[in-house]
Design a binder for these strands. Sequence first.
DNA 1: GCAAAAGTGTTCTAGGTACACCCATGT
DNA 2: ACATGGGTGTACCTAGAACACTTTTGC
Lengths: 222, 222
Amino acid sequence: MSYQYNYPHPAVTTDVVLFGLIDECLKVLLVRRARPPFANHWALPGGFLDIDEDLEDCALRELEEETGVSGVYLEQLYTFGKPGRDPRERVISVAYYALVPATDIEIRAASDARAVRWFAYRDLPELAFDHVDIIHKAQQRVSSKLDYSTIALKFMPEKFTLGELQSVYECILDERLDKRNFRKRLRTYDCLTDTGEVRRNGGHRPARLYRAKSPDTVQIVK
Amino acid sequence: MSYQYNYPHPAVTTDVVLFGLIDECLKVLLVRRARPPFANHWALPGGFLDIDEDLEDCALRELEEETGVSGVYLEQLYTFGKPGRDPRERVISVAYYALVPATDIEIRAASDARAVRWFAYRDLPELAFDHVDIIHKAQQRVSSKLDYSTIALKFMPEKFTLGELQSVYECILDERLDKRNFRKRLRTYDCLTDTGEVRRNGGHRPARLYRAKSPDTVQIVK
DNA sequence: GCAAAAGTGTTCTAGGTACACCCATGT
DNA sequence: ACATGGGTGTACCTAGAACACTTTTGC
């Protein structure tokens, strides 16, 4: 089968930067490439756009196929298209990012047994293509969104404690926050409901468990 | 000449939303399409990516070819790729936006005599493709950037008065601002130099003329 | 001298930061 | 009883909002 055009067409791909927090550490989900170019290098999950497929659907499909992760909320990040970024042919990549409660997510390697793994953002392996640039840009976007939205809730499982949520902020902003100020700010956002339950977690007072009021939408605050 | 691929490739285009302020009114530069689809509809300047051309270069080239405007500072806006947005074939469009001092800019129709015109943002004609969505998204981006950057200076000619700059803000935000607070805020940004010159402009005190300290960079404030 | 835009400071308010102690549990 | 993280309120400070009069010109 072959497809013909009167002038050359680039290929279009999508790539997904999937962030999670594990062990108080920002992680990115990567897949190991099975084939050249960059065989055995780690890369972002992603791949070629089907000709009748919406961009975001492509990102979701490739993510699911390569990592088993489905149903995440994607936001478009940026489009990368420098000539030469893929040695095979001209490739334009529309990058997306998403945040997931990493401990809740089940990852599964693709059928062709490519490895899939979380890597610490601060300790990335050598990456294929310009994927390291994409990841850095995504991290900057997430950092700045923390300040004016409730995007951090996307990292949280259904129920969580305020201490856990605070440590998410501290992780990504890489600074300590004051507990009382942090809680006051959350109160003004009015984005949480108290489940009434508590979590016992070792030799100290149990923590109340909260739930996001609208877990499917990222609210802009300020 | 014909180009063949083993699987179908979409076309990639760039489109540019060029904003200017004329008569205290936000305008967008549009070109009239000469050919189908949407012949005689107005559209954003833009066109197909050359196979070895950077995305931003493509946007600059198409803008220059179709409108005669060159050397503007572009920022990437978003990538639009819904299947069916172009009736000919699948087209992914990477949209850019830019702000120019409209009164300084010389526009010139393309050689094939397509018309080029400024349209008021609040009174757009019927547009080709999904260009109306692109323009609205660009306007939102510019509005929000006004609040945390010096992007408004991109609308200004080399020398301008504080009153003129204030009316730029008022136009885009669509609200009146307090003169003293506005000037105090600008002072803290430290982005202007006093030229020492004044502009006489009718029956009132002449206004001092200012110049942007770094006209080529958009500074993030706050 | 009158109309019209330019220019200039102070007070008030609200939101953000800094800060210290008691509580409930496990060992 | 003690170690550990959970939970709570107030004082201070700074940035943004509200607000009115004098100046310089053209007619």
